[in-house]
Design a protein around this nucleic acid. Structure first.
Lengths: 315, 315
DNA sequence: TTGTAAGCGTTATCAC
DNA sequence: GTGATAACGCTTACAA
């Protein structure tokens, strides 16, 4: 018991004991068993993150932000990736809940009722990140993808484009893209416009898919003069393909993406896109979760991290 | 006890009991406490991964590969990122070892003696991934970065470049880049060449850094005709800057990167780079670790995942 | 096939 | 400031 105290609250023991313990710990290479500690203390110091259907760079940045906040406070971040669908996520939640996490961060807002029930039953604070919703399980940090779509609709209309198309990849798992599409429709509607073509594909989010989209677009009977793609990867794929085909961007066809990765600013012309603070979103998600874990805040927290439309050379 | 059995080895109990348990589990929303289970069974079903100084896409892909292998076998993957230096890694290892992992995957081979000692003392199987070494702690999965550098040196020399430069970003934490530089020197030496300029910067790995490198290069008294950059991000930054400045690539200056991300194939001209199987590397690391955990293999396993030089338009 | 007993390595609690 | 004791929720080992 004295050792346990010396390790966790050194000030509560005499300096003699403190040093004796420190020496023994060093000599023995002692490392506390977190399973025993967690069991006895009834707290895990564990936060689980379940990442579904988002690109590597988004989740890596967001995770980094979350980790920065949580680790210094003694929390460990347990990650489950690879959940492309709400059903896969459900299994991941069931597995991770066994680790008695003190808090859970989930990506997106799309999940099964069973997942919701499990989370409620476990009584764990939950933060749903990446996208705002009116009906969060608990708390919510992200941006309003519909607003982002509206902003893009207005931008394209403002720049004088009239025959606007939407092309999306991986729309079987990127539910947020649908909301941006919805927003695009709303933004265009303000100017009396309607998308001339909407393509929702399940193709992978690769530059090749973007290239294919561009070729389809050029052949399209609707003859679009601008296209909003569901993310930067396919948007860049489309842009580079246009350049290969000698199609002038934005004169012949304007191209816009979503994500705001660094590389979009570096290419020629730089890509018009929508950026949001990924790392900051991770940080805010972690901070909000901590507020909930430590009962400093009631359920229902909502943090809008906003977004920024970067109007650049491709539109 | 019967419940425990019904859950872990359903075949060992009667179907009557099995169903009664299943019903109760459902009704109560029971989830086994992994802390209690781990403590009693003296096994954690946990594998920890410590990621140091690599880009988001590399580690995301590799992690995905590892997760694919481990999760179906009931292992959980606990990740610690954010260790840029061996000292940070040392702290991460100390913290994670408390979770009694059954295996540990580390990125790279650069670490402190204290880290090595802790790992040895813990008696955990260890896989060092990403880079091959002759002195692994336990087992090793990756590629030989020196060979990759040699391949690039030969390639550039073969294509007739004679005034070859190396520019590296983040070389305070990307130790593998040094080995590629070493390889480049060796590869060039075969043809009686020596790099005309070697720049090892601690600047961040961003396209802007690449752009700055290119401008420096053009002003360089050594007048390089080709440059091997330490990764694709800065290589693309350099390429795009060259295009903005109207500098012909590869005629005036050839550009090569390292990494082999998808986007390098999509740009114009496509970037010469070196690709390795990231996801496969993660899978192999996990499989090797499993072999060690389950004592199917002795320490000292070594898996070379190889690499591929993609000779493309920028050289 | 089911159940009993002991103990995993720590921490909460309370007495000294 | 220190230490004894009783959990924590499971699994191993063994008995019935």
């Amino acid at each position: 018991m004295t050792v346990s105290r010396a390790l966790r609250e050194p000030d509560a023991v005499s300096s003699r004991v403190r040093e004796k313990v420190a020496t023994a710990v060093r000599d023995l290479g002692y490392l506390p068993n977190r399973f025993a500690g967690g069991l006895a203390a009834r707290r895990s110091r564990l936060v689980t993150v379940i990442v579904s259907g988002i690109s590597a760079s988004v989740y890596a940045d967001a995770l980094r932000g979350a980790d920065e906040v949580l680790r210094p406070l003694g929390y460990e971040v347990l990650i489950s990736q690879l959940t492309e669908t709400p059903e896969q996520e459900e299994r991941a939640v069931a597995a991770l809940l066994g680790w008695q996490p003190e808090g859970v961060i989930l990506s997106g807002i799309e999940r099964t009722d069973a997942t919701r029930r499990m989370l409620h039953a476990a009584g764990v604070p939950v933060v749903e990140a990446l996208e705002l919703t009116d009906t969060p399980i608990d708390s919510n940090v992200g941006l309003d993808h519909r607003s982002a779509g509206i902003a893009m609709g207005r931008h394209l209309a403002d720049r004088g484009y009239r025959r606007i198309a939407f092309y999306g990849a991986r729309l079987d798992s990127d539910f947020r893209a649908f909301r941006r599409l919805e927003g695009l429709r709303a933004g265009l509607a303000e100017c009396g416009l309607v998308p001339v073509r909407v393509v929702c594909s399940e193709a992978p989010s690769t530059p090749e898919t973007g290239a294919r989209f561009l070729r389809e677009l050029l052949d399209d009977a609707a003859a679009p003069d601008a296209v909003f793609l569901s993310n930067d990867t396919i948007a860049m794929g489309a842009l580079f393909e246009a350049q290969r085909l000698g199609v002038a961007v934005p004169e012949r066809i304007a191209i816009a993406g979503f994500g705001g990765s660094d590389i979009t600013a570096a290419i020629n012309p730089p890509l018009t896109t929508i950026r949001f603070a990924r790392r900051e979103m991770g940080r805010r998600a972690a901070l909000t979760l901590l507020d909930r874990i430590e009962r400093r805040a009631p359920p229902g927290q909502r943090v809008d991290v906003g977004f920024e439309l970067l109007a650049r050379g491709t539109t």
